[in-house]
Nucleic acid binder design. Structure first.
Length: 426
RNA sequence: GGAGAGGUGGCUGAGUGGUCGAAAGCAGCGGUUUGCUAAACCGUCGUACGGUCAAAAGCUGUACCGAGAGUUCGAAUCUCUCCCUCUCCGCCA
């Protein structure tokens, strides 16, 4: 969410930069709606001020023992018009905040302009895609053949776009979670947290999923609880409506959680395998920083995520998203894409963003710097998406005989060097 | 799920219908004093959104005492619903 007075004062300039994200509906109505809303507010407040003054007067006169029934009647008579004005304000206010809350963050000046994914700019490439002396398989073939991934039964238990892992498949997932958490806590200075996997509406509003993206979420019937789409939601909201100590920043947290996404509107995409599922696991990195340090911290956070891929020996590239491809709340985003030989392509495995004060204004996350408190900057990134890392390992480390080599770094967590096919009762 | 107690400013804590946005204390901030620290003393000290202003300051209005609705000329104070915390019971990993 934007700072209203700043947005109003710099409207033309901000609108200009926002337009590089694509068309933003309602932006052209902003000024007129803002004017109408303020006019209605002023009118309603003036009437209330009058009524309040009369009520105070009644109190004074009553103490003196005077008859106030005529005055009481006149205040009572103001009530209907007061209610009507309040209705106007409420309606305009609702319309206005819907508009304001629907305006995405302004891209940072370093973000390249562009329309979509094809305009993203590669900033780094690491590791060489391996050359196979056989036709590498995709994980949706390899997983079932190894007896470690069972999509049919997952569909029976729940439905399409769910996964059931068996044996070494389940263990690999668990090993990856532990490995990532260990690296981030021991080597990168993050504090591990284990948050609730459901969050309330206020939290989802704070990080920007609500109200605009509620169709992407799963809601618990009869409760104000939503399944989290990412650990970003509960972890960022740890400090909702709090004031942090500026001297203690940046605060760096990491968390493992499952993530739940309805994937509404992505019906045709990534239908095979477990690239896109309703429930997946992720280790998330979250930072709270002072404004002047947030971009340096974004680079570090992105590097922390890349470090996991380096340690696992997985080739990747990092791109900076262009204005047209960025998420709603982000001011700058790096995507890290891992090489998947089964698909002969790089595939997103981490997304690292600086939201500047966009989330903290919504969520009320401040810090005390000098005398005054100001809004913190919030950042987060996947470190990494565990399911997709699982896919990358299976596909990149597959061997001609159908087995999968366990990357060196994971062996202490797996107690095995090779994943071999196991017959399941099918 | 049942019964009871409670939710007031950064914190502690007063306030049961009429200058209460809210006493007092602590913390914070500005200052006086001081060789320095400490102490003492004086002052200041909530947020959001409006109006005034070129803008800021200032002045001023409205709203906010867990959330929402209601009663009343007037609500932190009364009524209802919900949420949260604590205690006991039940259930449960």
């Amino acid at each position: 969410m934007h700072d209203l007075s700043h947005f109003r004062a710099n409207f033309d300039q901000i609108a200009q930069r926002l337009s590089t994200r694509g068309n933003i509906p309602g932006l052209e109505q902003f000024r007129e709606l803002d004017r109408k809303r303020r006019a209605a507010l002023t009118e309603a407040e003036q009437l209330k001020a009058k009524a309040n003054a009369e009520a105070a007067n009644i109190g004074k006169l009553k103490k003196e023992g005077a008859d106030t029934s005529a005055l009481q009647e006149s205040v009572r008579a103001m009530k209907t018009s007061m209610a009507a004005l309040d209705e106007d304000v409420k309606a305009l206010d609702g319309e206005f905040s819907e508009l304001l809350q629907g305006i995405p963050n302004v891209p940072h000046e370093s973000v390249p302009e562009g329309k979509g994914a094809e305009d993203n700019v590669e900033v780094r490439r690491a590791g060489e895609p391996r050359s196979f002396d056989f036709e590498p398989k995709a994980h949706w073939d390899l997983g079932p053949e190894l007896g470690i991934l069972d999509l049919e039964r997952a569909a029976k238990i729940t439905g399409a776009r769910f996964a059931l892992y068996w044996g070494m498949g389940a263990k690999l997932e668990r090993a990856l979670i532990n490995f990532m958490l260990d690296v981030h806590t021991r080597e990168h200075g993050y504090t591990e947290v284990l948050p609730p996997f459901m969050a309330n509406s206020a939290s989802l509003f704070g990080t920007g999923q609500l109200p605009k993206f509620k169709d992407d979420l799963f809601k618990c019937e009869g409760h104000d609880f939503w399944l989290i789409p990412t650990a970003e939601v509960p972890v960022t909201n740890i400090y909702r409506d709090e004031t942090l100590e500026g001297a203690e920043m940046p605060i760096q947290l990491c968390a493992y959680t499952p993530c739940f996404r309805s994937e509404a509107g992505s019906y045709g995409r990534d239908v095979r395998g477990i690239i896109r599922v309703h429930q997946f696991q992720k280790v998330e990195l979250v930072k709270f920083t002072r404004p002047e340090q947030s971009y340096e911290e974004l680079d570090k956070l992105t590097g922390d995520a890349e470090d996991i891929l380096r340690r696992l020996g997985l080739p990747f590239r990092t791109v900076v998203l262009c204005t047209g491809d960025m998420g709603f709340s982000s001011a700058k985003t790096y995507d890290i894409e891992v090489w998947l030989p089964g698909q002969n392509n790089y595939k997103e495995i981490s997304s690292c963003s600086n939201f500047e004060a966009f989330q903290s204004r919504r969520a009320g996350i401040r810090f005390r710097g000098g005398k005054k408190s100001e809004y913190a900057h919030t950042l987060n990134g996947s470190g990494l998406a565990v399911g997709r890392t699982w896919v990358a390992i299976i596909e990149n480390y597959q061997q001609k005989d159908g087995t999968v080599l366990v990357p060196e770094a994971l062996r202490p967590y797996m107690n095995e060097e090779v994943i071999r096919p196991v017959k399941r009762n099918a």
